[in-house]
């Protein structure tokens, strides 16, 4: 190794390079998003292929109100990230804190709603009896993701389970709810929650939304960091900090965009 290290500051970390008009991180994030597009693109294509190949495809399985709510939440959050960035451009650090905080809170709200939706699925059951009867509905006490095998494995397996079937499809809300059924454990051949194993629809639903939720969580970490400890950089290197907020914002817009595709494909179509 030579004793004297050469000048090694990496150019264009803050100011854009004239001929490309980009600073490094900005190009970097665009490339990253390109690969993300390929990732979700592949999953969407899989969705289409599976759906085209399926004899019948379950529809309207998900709560449209909750989905709509989450859509609004994300749209709001993508406004607030922009505002956060603009306030930095306007050198208004206080405002930035507010908007950035708002974004993080909205993101958390999104995750909360989503987890409720998931929870509903894992407490909603499909059962099949020996004589080929099938029901969908809830179990007494709303157990989470119960499995037939696990029930049978219990030291003292319950002789029978109390099952509340769903109201028949199409019947409006007020309609009389069907009577709870008492099903003998011995008669059951299948009992499973509406998890990803239920059908290819649920499989692709959980994978797509799950992967998206992971992106949201990642966003919460990044945005939260720049809201909290990371924001100290504002006082040392304001330009670079502003750039970081912009880059994080670009990422967040992508996450939001993905949801804009997910919502109709999974909830409405």
């Amino acid at each position: 190794m030579h004793a004297h290290a050469a000048a090694s500051a990496i150019p264009y970390t803050v100011e854009p390079r004239p001929d490309t008009g980009l600073y490094n991180a900005r190009l970097g994030i665009w490339l990253f998003l390109a690969s993300e597009v390929m990732l979700f693109g592949a999953l969407f294509s899989s969705y289409i292929l599976l759906r085209v190949g399926a004899p019948e495809w379950p529809q309207r399985q998900l709560s449209i109100p909750l989905g709509t709510l989450n859509t609004f939440v994300l749209i709001l959050s993508s406004i607030s990230v922009v505002m956060a960035w603009l306030s930095l451009k306007r050198k208004d650090f206080g405002r930035f804190k507010l908007w950035q905080g708002a974004t993080v809170l909205l993101a958390l709200l999104f995750i909360t709603v989503k987890s409720f939706e998931y929870h509903d699925k894992f407490t909603h059951y499909f059962v099949q009896t020996r004589d080929g009867q099938t029901y969908t509905g809830h179990l007494e006490g709303n157990p989470f993701n119960l499995k037939l095998s696990r029930l049978q494995a219990l030291p003292t397996p319950p002789a029978e389970i109390v099952f509340h079937p769903d109201a028949p499809a199409g019947s409006h809300a007020g309609a009389a709810h069907p009577e709870p059924l008492k099903l003998k454990l011995a008669d059951l051949v299948k009992l499973e929650a509406f998890g990803p194993w239920r059908s290819t629809f649920y499989a692709i639903y959980f994978v797509l939304t799950g992967l998206h939720a992971l992106h949201v969580l990642g966003g919460i970490l990044v945005l939260g960091y720049f809201w909290g400890p990371g924001s100290r950089m504002w006082f040392t290197e304001p330009e670079r900090f502003t750039n970081r907020i912009e880059v994080a914002g670009l990422y967040w817009h992508f996450v939001e965009l993905v949801w804009i595709f997910l919502f109709p494909t999974l909830y409405l179509l």
Binding site: L39, G41, S46, P196, W197, S199, A203, V207
Partner: peptide
């Protein structure tokens, strides 16, 4: 590479979660 990553995730679900992609 991302499409293979997607495929990998799907196959992982088939192997661990009992999905049928």
């Amino acid at each position: 590479f991302p499409p293979l990553e997607a495929a990998g995730v799907l196959q992982l679900c088939d192997n661990l979660l009992g999905t049928s992609f």
